[in-house]
Amino acid sequence: MNERSKIQPDWFGKTVCGLFLGFALALALVGCFAWFGPGGIDAQDKYQFNMWLLAPIWLSVLSFVYLFHSTRQALLWLGGANLLAWGLLLLLR
Rank of each mutant, 00 (worst) to 15 (best):
G40S: 01
Q48C: 07
K46G: 05
G79A: 03
V61C: 04
R72Y: 09
A43W: 07
L78P: 02
V65L: 04
L53A: 13
W77Y: 15
M51S: 09
G37W: 02
L62G: 04
L62E: 06
Q73G: 07
N50P: 01
L78S: 03
L59D: 08
N50W: 06
S60A: 15
Y66P: 03
Y47G: 07
G79P: 00
G79Y: 00
D45G: 07
D42E: 12
D45E: 14
L75P: 06
F49V: 12
F49Y: 15
Q73H: 13
G37L: 01
D45N: 12
Q73W: 11
G39R: 04
V61F: 07
H69K: 15
F64V: 11
I57Q: 02
Y47C: 06
S60M: 13
D42K: 10
K46D: 01
A74W: 03
P38M: 13
Y47T: 13
S60D: 13
R72T: 12
S63Q: 12
W77T: 12
Q44I: 12
Q44P: 07
M51K: 12
F49T: 13
L53E: 07
K46T: 04
Q48F: 15
G37C: 03
M51A: 11
T71M: 06
W77D: 07
D42M: 10
I57L: 04
D42R: 10
Q48S: 10
S70G: 01
Q44G: 06
L75D: 10
V65C: 02
F68M: 06
M51L: 15
Q44Y: 15
I57Y: 02
H69P: 06
K46N: 06
T71Q: 05
A43P: 05
R72H: 10
R72V: 11
Y66F: 08
W58P: 01
Q48N: 09
K46H: 03
I41Y: 08
Y66N: 04
S60I: 14
S60Q: 10
Q44F: 15
P38E: 15
R72L: 14
L62A: 06
Y47I: 13
I41S: 12
F49A: 13
S63A: 14
H69D: 11
Y66M: 05
M51I: 14
N50G: 09
S70C: 03
A74N: 01
G39E: 03
D45R: 09
M51T: 11
F49I: 13
V61L: 14
Q44D: 11
Q48R: 13
F68H: 06
Y66I: 03
P38F: 14
F68A: 04
L75C: 11
T71K: 04
Q73P: 08
W58E: 00
L54K: 03
S70W: 04
L67K: 13
G40K: 01
M51G: 10
N50D: 07
W77V: 14
V61Q: 03
F64L: 11
W58A: 03
Q48G: 09
A74P: 01
